[in-house]
Structure formats: C-alpha cells, structure tokens
Design a protein around this nucleic acid. Structure first.
Lengths: 137, 137
DNA sequence: TTATTGATGCAACAGCGTTGCAAGAGATAA
DNA sequence: TTATCTCTTGCAACGCTGTTGCATCAATAA
C-alpha cells in the first residue's frame, strides 16, 4: 500500500512528500468523493490548509483526481481511468446519498446518450443522481 | 410585462418590492441562468448585496427559481413549471457553453432513464452538459 | 389612514480559496 | 554521503462569498 502510493505519485511525475502520500492514502482508504474540509478533518492539524488546497490542485492538474459537483459544493474523487493533464475522460455517474451524505462514483454505469437540440454540441457530461445508497436502504 | 411581474410575485405569495421586481425582471430579460454576481452587476448599486442574497433565497424557497450547478459555482434559473415550496420538479438538462460562459435550461430535452446498480434508489437527477451553444458554433 | 407584518440596509462576521515570500525537504549526480 | 537545484511547504495576509442581528422602512389589509 505504502509502496503503491509512492509509485502512483511517481507515475504522475509528482515528488513523494508526506502530505501527498497522506492525501492520496485518504482517498484510497475512504473510497468516496471528499471535499477539502473532509480531508482537513481526516488529517487533523498535520498540514496547513493552504498545502491541502495546493495538493488538490496539483492532483487535479495531473489527472489523479477529478471534480465532483454536488448541491453543496465541490468534492474530489480518484480517477479510475488513467487521466492526464490534457485528457480527463469521465462519463460515469456521481451518486450522492441524501441519508449518509456520501458521494461516490458509479464506475460501471455509463451515461446514456442525450439528444441535444440543433446547434448544441456536447463536450463533457456531468450527471449527479441523488437518492439512497445500498447501505442506507 | 411590468404587470406580469407583479402578478407572478402575487401568485407566489410574495410582496411586490422594487428589488424583487427588478430581480425577477432580470431573469425574464436575460433568459439564462444567473449567479448572484451576475445579478449584482446587472442591477448596479441599487440594492444591498444582502438583499439580493435574501431575495434569491426567498425565490428559491417559494419555487420561483431553482439552483443550477456549474463547475464554477451555483447559478439560478427560473422554474418553467410551476414549482412550489414543497415540490421542485425538474428533470431537464442544464447546458453550459464553454465559449460564451452562458448556462441555460434545455426545457424540452428530457433526461434518459439510468439503470442503477442494485440497492441504489434515485430521487433527483441533475445533468449538466458542457459544450458549445448554437450562438457560438 | 393606521396597524401589522414583512423587507431592507448596515455593520459585522465566518468560511473558502488564493497569493507572495521565505524556509524547508525531495531528487539527482558526483 | 554530500552538494546542489528545484519543488513543496508554512505563514501571513488578502479578497470574495454568503450569513446573521438589529434597527428602520415600506407593502399590504382592515
């Protein structure tokens, strides 16, 4: 695990620092989409607020994580596919449970094609479904 | 128009004030989703920041407008159907043009049904498509 | 016209996210 | 291992967004 994290960082051309290792580890551990606040809570006072912001920004740019839009703000989740700086490709669904509040990616559910009116061209599709997850049913 | 605005406010059990009339008028005029900042810019210094926030909150609660999620924050758009405090019903699509930055509702495009994994129950569906609008093609 | 209820403006505040800068730690090569 | 360079971090400060309390003012109904 420890090793995997370091290798992952290396794969993405990122230096291994304890902050990056801990944040990446948190994502792997929790397995759900996390907000900046979630990460701050989870890591305690170990790192500066600013450092966490910058780390998330770096991960985002390198394609390690992607944004997840939510009715209450922005969260981040690991990219399952290997994304890169240039090429984020996500057509999976984000599911937010209104009971437990957790948001995660439904990797195997693809977004059905949508018929847009004339003149509209789709580039990126973002689908958020809110409801109840299996754990809360 | 002037009259329509006042009647609409009355329909929603809202007092007619110049702030509410102007904000509702702005939505009708622009016809696209607006952020708090857009409205502030559009109305100038005529009303206090706080008043605009409170007006948007009131409109939201009464079902006059609904939230539109965006990668850069929250916007608001008029509800086409007659929504109420209890019952916001929206299964239309939000389209954001990456050229001009405008976001609007595609009222006539319905979201196709999505087959969720076992145990998941959908309650509300939110679909944002980013791309190019007819004006920017 | 007046009384009542609700809306507004002002001041203050909390939280989120960013920037500049100096100090510190990781990677690389000798 | 050490020296060097480059990138990362922590700190302080700031701007922006959104909220709250309170006194004042305006819209409605009688």
């Amino acid at each position: 695990m420890e090793q995997t994290i370091r290798e992952t960082l290396k794969d993405y051309n990122l230096r291994s620092t304890s902050c990056r290792e801990d944040i990446l580890g948190t994502f792997l551990n929790k397995g759900v989409a996390l907000s900046h606040g979630d990460i701050e809570d989870s890591l305690g006072e170990r790192f500066d607020r600013v450092t966490i912001y910058r780390t998330l920004k770096t991960f985002l740019e390198k394609g390690l994580i992607h944004k997840v839009l939510d009715d209450e703000g922005v969260r981040y989740a690991l990219c399952k596919d290997h994304c890169s700086e240039k090429d984020h490709h996500h057509d999976h669904i984000h599911f937010k449970c209104t009971e437990c509040g957790q948001t995660n990616c439904l990797a195997n559910v693809h977004i059905p094609a949508v018929q847009l009116p004339d003149g509209y061209f789709a580039n990126e599709v973002n689908l958020l479904i809110q409801g109840r997850c299996p754990a809360c049913t």
